[in-house]
Design a protein around this nucleic acid. Structure first.
Lengths: 221, 221
DNA sequence: TAGCTAACGTACTAGTTCGTACATTAGTAA
DNA sequence: TTACTAATGTACGAACTAGTACGTTAGCTA
């Protein structure tokens, strides 16, 4: 039952700044995602940590900065995943479809991240604005989309007039909504958007949609 | 400067249950949309009303029930708008495009509603679940989509294998995301999804996408 | 091994916030 | 006009919550 990172030290306290900080961030991520910024309780975060509330203020300064730190780490994880995108060896259509699938999978696998982003939007993205880190990260995914799009458009395969940012918005909106709005959508329309049994259907649907849009016959325009 | 519903009565109090209730709901909608459920302050709502906090508890029972009432009214307004949809005289392609445009416009025109729905999702749609009203409203839009889809599929114009609920999700996700996530998206990618100058572009983009998806050549499948 | 400091814990406070007990009055019906 | 009740206002309290003052100790370094 003993966790990996548990040096056997009967009742003396252990000093490990990095571990303490990481643990606070872990718990804070859960708590903020669970209850929203204002709903989250600093005391609750502290209680679920091996350390005390004092340490939250010691390392992060306050609730506001803690939430910013949580966001920073969450976005960093996402960006790292994006850096491992490896689809450019495929032809443009296959590459886009693969990218869509990976985006879809990634959203599904990180519901906490989606909740944090929803929460941050309720607050007008003020924490992102306050963070130096987050402005500069950029988005590897955007670069990938950009290059695929260029190849596809040059070859005439892609007829749609979109750039990478707009296409990214299109893909993300569907993936995001499916997770973020599943509760109200389920309650109102009686359909669980995250039902594993319908997963493949929705995954293909998005791919079909994006490909259909990009490659549609526009000769009549 | 005197508002329409202001009977001239110097300093005696006016008794009008309906008006008081409506005014509380108006202000509460703004306050909840502004700050989220936990961020909203009952005292703040009361202060911005011509009545007092006492009346909130008198009419609604508590903060929780007030939020539920706010949601109920917001959804009622949406459903009423949906009942005025008049697109079925058009051919299926034009009807869908028109429906998409109306959905797009409606989301843009009601950012407060979108915030409320985001907030309700953070809380797992528990207030919708607690409301008897909201379960039974149904969705006129869904019926409209359903009929258009049937016509289009029978005629062979629509080749996609979707039902009304899934198509509704597809259309909504884009319209919703554009408003709900505009802050984080803008902060991270430097593009304002609600920029009036790009409005037409996004509006057409969604129409093109949905039509392309529904009518795509699937002979190769 | 002495001493220093980063890391940590305890206990408390000031301010906030939902909710309510109690008092009052406008409008209505008899 | 009287009496009654729905509607309203005032004042307050109990519980919560972010943040802090102050004291302690682990572990490193000279």
């Amino acid at each position: 039952m003993t966790s990996v990172e548990e040096p056997a030290r009967p009742n003396g306290r252990i000093r490990d700044a990095a571990r303490t900080k990481a643990e606070i961030l872990d718990v804070a991520t859960q708590e903020f995602a669970r209850a929203g910024y204002d709903g989250a309780r600093v005391d609750e975060i502290a209680a679920r940590t091996r350390t005390t509330k004092r340490m939250i203020y010691y390392y992060f300064g306050g609730k506001e900065q803690l939430f910013t730190a949580v966001l920073e780490r969450a976005y960093t994880v996402i960006r790292q995943a994006e850096q491992e995108l490896d689809v450019e060896h495929l032809d443009p259509v296959a590459a886009i479809r693969r990218l869509v699938e990976l985006t879809f999978d990634h959203h599904e696998a990180h519901p906490d991240f989606i909740r944090l982003v929803s929460i941050e939007n309720i607050h007008g993205a003020e924490h992102i604005a306050a963070s130096e880190k987050l402005g500069k990260i950029g988005s590897p995914a955007l670069d990938v989309i950009s290059r695929i799009l260029e190849t596809g458009q040059k070859s005439g395969l892609f007829t749609a007039d979109v750039d990478a940012v707009d296409l990214h918005a299109m893909i993300s909106s569907y993936c995001f909504f499916r997770v973020s709005n599943r509760h109200t959508f389920g309650a109102l329309f009686g359909r669980d958007l995250v039902d594993p049994g319908r997963r493949e259907h929705y995954r293909n649907m998005l791919g079909d949609m994006v490909i259909a849009y990009l490659t549609a016959d526009r000769s009549e325009d």
